[in-house]
Design a protein around this nucleic acid. Structure first.
Length: 892
RNA sequence: AGGGGCAUAGCUCAGUUGGUAGAGCGCCACCCUUACAAGGUGGAUGUCAUCGGUUCGAGCCCGGUUGCCCCUACCA
């Protein structure tokens, strides 16, 4: 049975309900314009551009991770006095979007070809206007604090202008050129794709050995191929020049099977004599290597394919067949002619189109290319010299290696959705004009028959300009002056080449400065078994479901608390549940504080340093250390460390101990001081935790009597900014409190090990041999008695140990023995075991430490501090073992 | 083939100048102790993959081996 309790005085529920908080809070932040950054400000700038999600996209776990990091950084910087801009936008995602809309059309029995370009593009726009910003709504659920007023779409007019300008400028510089080349062709898309869009997959293929009859009928030459149908485009046979088997064949002619064409046998080093038969058929029109060989030997180039992947008239009777069909047919026909001499299984890797999944065919066509070598040089430098920092650094090598081995980038796509290439061809004289503005007549022949290029640009072309095209470039805007270069980029390493490298090149070329200072590579979110999440496997976790179930903060923290740069992250529901429990813990701790502080008079309270007890000083000390760790971790981009430090402080320092100590202090004359410390520590924690878990912290902050406005724009707590307060914390108090905790833990331990009921109040004795310890224990008698559940505690000599459990505690130079008479309470066997174990541990320590300390080389070489610590440990262990042994003998 | 990464408690992972192995989850036991059972208290569990080297001292540094993962390129 679950029952919902609320506190009458405060009306706060005893469980945290994220749903009741999140939407309301987000709407409030947005209405107050808290996410807005200013183009001009006296504050230092901090800017992040959102890697633009596809308009077809919906929020997945990858986004959740990536955005949690960005939002953490933005909120942290915003609270730390920066003019923080998180600039959102979406990507038109050429192929992806076109595919989605085509599918929609298919349902209505339409297709893009019958619709025509103009109508089809209209349809896509309609679709985009309907669904294109769905992901922004989902981002709001996560809590992303983007400056929504600045949202950009890659096909917006401003961005389009930037794209045209860059294209024209690169063309003028001779970096963009048109060329007829072999490209990776995706026949379902009927478009070229870039090298990066080709995915290599290992498949089980077949190696066919095929005989080519010599033209002089003196015999055969046998070649091996995995793609027999391409023989229809063969224009040579090639062997290695030093291959003795084939010396007699070089220069002769063979007949291409199934045709009447005669082709030459040539020699080239490109052939590996070890592979297959050592003879290679050359098909320059359909193979990248053959294309090169064809070029050096000036071979004819035969194209046997149509754009849609069927064979053309050059394939003779095979015309109209698909590649697969043709392959089957060719093999059959070769068999009939007894020209197929061998088929062997041959595993090899084949390029597939990343988008459509089809096998990529090398295909000769006219495309636009961007020369990369010149752009790559400065892009290498800025990463080498650290102007752009990669985190983790290991990606630098990968990046440089790629830039050193660059092919030119095929930037044209035979699609309809995207930035149309700003180039016009004269139908009369063939002149090509590239221009930012529409071209109406030919500059060469004055003809008005100018036709714009049908192709659009690769989506990544506009993405490469994103850091400045979103800020109004090519116009000279204040936004750019303030926020370019951006401060921080968070992205997956899968788009290091697609996007990051190209942004660096374009930024340097057109803004003369890097696009960002730091790139943080987040890993991939995997399922609990380490598998990639995929629909077909059915292991996809939907962030929106998780938010619905556990709240956005739980999701964010479970991601943030476990990331380390560049490493993949396994996530499962039980983990998120754990962080949901933490939210509840924080909620209830706050509830406790608010309940107990309803009578606290903040306005008239004046903190007296002398009123602070050890617990107060110790918790301030711990909080200071925690905040220092958080600050350092965030600067070092160690988000997990920062999150865990706060998590640990809240649960295991503040809740487990300070709150418990406060219960008796709230009844004492120090009540007001305790209330104040309870409140102020919580208030700082809420602010410090806000960037990771914004919703719950804002909600609790709004209930907090010390709030000033909104948590989201409150100052981020830092020890340096609050020296007066943190000076109140002391190491001495921390040590004292640690000793008190140890004593309490010792009693609980004996109780637990001996299965003594928590309800049973115990009588104990604490053996003490120094005044300092004596003072601490006696001053905190009531707290110890209450938390250890005692009804009697005597201090003094160790005394009589007959039938007593003994536990020795020590913190730094403070030591004590906790002695509990167990006569009549327990089965002694358990207690004997416990004490024997403790003695064994002591013995082990003593032997290890004394061995170390008697080694002269250790004393010589080790740091003084290390030696001191070890000496202290040894002394303590020696003291402890005496009492334990004594106790054990008296037990029997 | 080249490059990179990983191997630590049953699971997921920390462990940043080398100084006696940690957390969370899970597990076991006892507890509705007036913030929280989405909780409290206590407990068990590791030849830190393997071999060798450097060192007074190695989870950490160096070299070899094994196993898994990723990237780039090629595979007629």
């Amino acid at each position: 049975m679950e029952s919902e309790q609320t506190t009458p005085e405060t009306g706060i529920s005893d469980r945290y309900h994220p749903k009741q908080v999140e939407t309301k809070t987000y709407a409030w932040w947005e209405s107050q314009n808290y996410f807005q950054a200013a183009d001009q400000s006296t504050k230092p700038p901090f800017s992040v551009i959102l890697p633009p999600p596809n308009v077809t996209g919906s929020l997945h776990m990858g986004h959740a991770l990536n955005h949690s990091i960005q939002d953490l950084m933005i909120r942290w910087k915003r609270m730390s006095g920066f003019n923080a801009l998180w600039l959102p936008g979406t990507d038109h995602a050429g192929i992806a979007t076109q595919t989605v809309v085509e599918k929609e059309l298919k349902k209505k029995n339409l297709n893009r070809k019958t619709l025509g370009r103009e109508k089809f593009v209209e349809q896509i726009w309609d679709w985009k206007n309907l669904y294109g910003e769905r992901i922004f709504e989902q981002m709001r659920r996560l809590g992303d604090s983007c400056d929504w007023n600045r949202k950009v779409f890659t096909l917006d007019e401003g961005v389009s202008r930037a794209v045209k300008k860059v294209f024209v400028s690169l063309h003028k510089k001779g970096l963009i050129y048109r060329g007829k080349r072999l490209v990776n062709w995706s026949w379902p898309l009927e478009s070229a794709i870039s090298d990066l869009e080709v995915e290599h997959k290992n498949i089980k293929g077949t190696l066919f050995h095929i005989q080519y009859p010599l033209a002089d009928q003196s015999g055969f030459l046998t070649i091996a191929t995995t793609r027999p149908e391409t023989l229809l485009g063969d224009t040579a046979i090639c062997v290695h020049p030093e291959d003795i088997r084939y010396q007699g064949f070089i220069g002769k002619e063979v007949i291409v099977p199934l045709t009447t064409r005669k082709i030459k046998v040539i020699a080239d080093n490109a052939v590996d004599p070890q592979f297959g038969t050592g003879a290679l058929k050359i098909t320059p029109g359909h193979d990248f290597n053959d294309f090169k060989v064809g070029k050096t030997h000036q071979l004819e180039l035969i194209n046997i394919l149509e754009k849609n992947g069927t064979l053309n008239e050059n394939a003779g009777v095979y015309k109209g067949l698909s590649i697969q069909e043709a392959r089957k047919k060719v093999v059959e026909d070769l068999k009939k002619l007894n020209l197929l001499v061998k088929e062997e299984p041959h595993p090899h890797s084949v390029g597939h189109c990343q988008r459509s999944g089809a096998v990529v065919e090398p295909f000769l066509s006219e495309q636009w290319f961007l020369k990369m070598d010149r752009l790559a040089v400065p892009a290498k430098h800025v990463v080498e010299n650290g102007t752009v920092r990669f985190e983790p650094e290991s990606w630098v090598k990968v990046y440089l290696h790629w830039l050193n081995n660059l092919e030119d980038w095929c930037v044209s796509r035979q699609l309809w959705w995207g930035h149309r290439i700003p180039a016009w061809t004269c139908s009369d004289c063939g002149n090509i004009q590239v221009s930012e503005n529409d071209v109406s007549y030919c500059e060469k022949c004055r003809s008005a028959n100018m036709k714009q290029d049908e192709d659009v640009l690769d989506t990544w072309f506009s993405s490469a300009l994103w850091p400045f095209s979103t800020m109004g470039w090519p116009q000279d805007t204040e936004t750019q002056k303030t926020f370019y270069p951006t401060s921080f980029l968070v992205t997956g390493h899968d788009i290091l080449f697609f996007w990051v490298a190209r942004m660096i090149m374009m930024g340097l070329e057109f803004k003369k400065d890097v696009p960002f200072r730091t790139v943080y590579f987040n890993g991939i979110v995997r399922d609990s078994k380490g598998q990639k999440m995929s629909k077909s496997v059915g292991n996809v976790l939907d962030p929106l479901d998780l938010i619905e179930k556990y709240g956005a903060d739980s999701l964010r923290l479970s991601l943030l608390a476990h990331i380390s740069a560049g490493r993949d992250l396994k996530i499962s529901e039980p983990r998120i549940e754990g962080y949901r429990n933490f939210m509840n813990k924080l909620w209830n701790a706050s509830r406790f504080v608010f309940q107990n502080c309803t009578d606290f008079d903040l306005a008239n309270f004046k903190l007296q340093k002398s009123n602070l007890n050890s617990f107060d000083q110790a918790i301030i000390e711990k909080l200071g250390k925690c905040l220092t760790t958080v600050d350092k971790s965030l600067h070092d981009l160690r988000f997990a460390d920062a999150s865990q430090a706060l998590y640990h402080f809240v649960w295991h320092e503040y809740c487990d101990w300070y709150l418990e100590f406060s219960k008796s202090n709230l009844k004492s004359s120090e009540k007001q001081t305790t209330q104040y410390i309870l409140l102020i520590v919580l208030e700082k924690v809420l602010r410090a935790f806000h960037p990771m878990i914004p919703f719950i912290t804002e909600e609790l902050y709004q209930m907090h009597p010390m709030k000033t406005g909104a948590c989201i724009i409150a100052e981020y707590p830092k020890v340096q900014n609050d020296r007066e307060f943190f000076k109140l914390g002391t190491e001495n108090a921390e040590t004292e409190v640690d000793l008190i905790k140890e004593v309490i833990t010792a009693v609980r331990n004996i109780r637990g090990e001996n299965r003594l009921s928590p309800a049973l109040k115990l009588k104990i004795r604490v053996g003490i041999s120094d005044e300092k310890t004596q003072k601490i224990i006696s001053e905190n008698r009531s707290v110890i008695m209450s938390l250890a559940r005692l009804d009697e505690m005597n201090l003094g000599e160790v005394g009589e140990l007959k039938k007593c459990a003994v536990s020795a505690v020590s913190v730094k130079d403070l030591t004590a023995q906790v002695i509990i008479p167990l006569e009549g309470l327990v089965d002694f066997e358990e207690e004997i075991k416990r004490m024997q174990k403790a003695i064994e541990k002591c013995e082990k320590d003593i032997s290890l430490l004394s061995q170390k300390l008697s080694n002269p080389k250790f004393l010589e070489n080790a740091d003084e501090e290390v030696v001191e610590v070890d000496k202290q440990l040894l002394t303590n262990s020696q003291k402890q073992i005496v009492a334990l042994r004594e106790g054990l003998t008296r037990f029997r």
